[in-house]
């Protein structure tokens, strides 16, 4: 069982204040892990660290052969300019960037791939539409199609199912399960614990400090949830420097 990601005494945060504090552990290759915890618990911060958007305050992340830019990442709030005049098709095709780079042409087989991804998320017929005309759920479907094209070994989804209706949610979950069977490593921040129980074999419960990490059934205990809830959300401006050995 190989490790795709290994966190070694990892502390991530902003302005020296930790948002993820002393996290140790590994994400197995091909595993499907839910990251749960209260708002402000460090889920998004951990993901930003994994994809290299922020640098660790202490400790390190080992990615075992995968470069940060090879990780497909769906942010919680994508800063997409929805008024920009670009079509759904072009937006999805951007997922081919890794293979195509700045100048690579998009040939007939690539067009089939793009069409296939658009069909897989149920957006066939939307190709020429400007992205500004999509609903929230359709937007999320489009972003999943782009993720598919990125064909990444590691996929990080930050609260992908927020404000998404049940049908869309089920469709997109199917895609996530499909990625799992393809042995891709998937990390997803999820708030719906029933969804976690039903679909995610592994769970990390994060409340700034890692509370529990392992098989979902062993993590989702009343005791652990209570511990997570006691976590204090606000930064303490008077906080002393952390003395835990780095």
């Amino acid at each position: 069982m190989t490790e795709q990601l290994r966190f070694r005494n990892l502390t991530l945060g902003y302005d020296r204040h930790p948002a993820v504090h002393h996290l140790d552990g590994a994400v197995r290759t091909g595993s499907l892990t839910a990251v749960i915890g209260p708002n402000g618990g460090g889920k998004s911060t951990l993901f930003k660290g994994v994809v290299g958007v922020i640098k660790p305050l202490a400790g390190r992340i080992e990615r075992n052969g995968v470069r940060p830019q090879d990780i497909a990442y769906l942010p919680q709030v994508a800063d997409i300019d929805r008024s920009f005049p670009i079509s759904v098709y072009d937006m999805v095709a951007m997922g081919l960037w890794r293979g195509k780079g700045l100048f690579g042409g998009i040939g007939a087989s690539d067009r089939d791939t793009v069409e296939g991804a658009i069909a897989a998320v149920g957006l066939t017929g939307f190709e020429p539409r400007p992205i500004g005309t999509l609903s929230g759920g359709q937007m999320q479907r489009m972003l999943f199609a782009r993720l598919m094209l990125q064909d990444a070994r590691v996929i990080v989804l930050d609260e992908p199912f927020n404000a998404i209706d049940a049908k869309t949610c089920a469709d997109l979950l199917d895609l996530v399960r499909c990625w799992h069977t393809e042995q891709r490593t998937v990390l997803a921040a999820i708030h719906d614990l029933d969804m976690v129980k039903a679909n995610f074999p592994d769970t990390l419960l994060l409340a700034r400090e890692p509370v529990a990490w392992g098989k979902t059934a062993e993590v989702l205990t009343a005791d652990n949830m209570l511990k997570a809830r006691r976590m204090c959300e606000a930064f303490d401006e008077q906080a002393e420097a952390c003395v835990v050995a780095a």
């Binding site: 958007v53 994508a78 997409i80 300019d81 937006m91 951007m94 782009r146």
Partner: peptide
């Protein structure tokens, strides 16, 4: 024509561009 892709992508989805390229 040469900088078309990063230019368009930086307008529409700068976060995605940062995640795939330093262009």
């Amino acid at each position: 024509a040469l900088i078309w892709r990063p230019l368009v992508l930086e307008c529409v989805d700068p976060g995605f561009l940062r995640s795939v390229s330093r262009a």
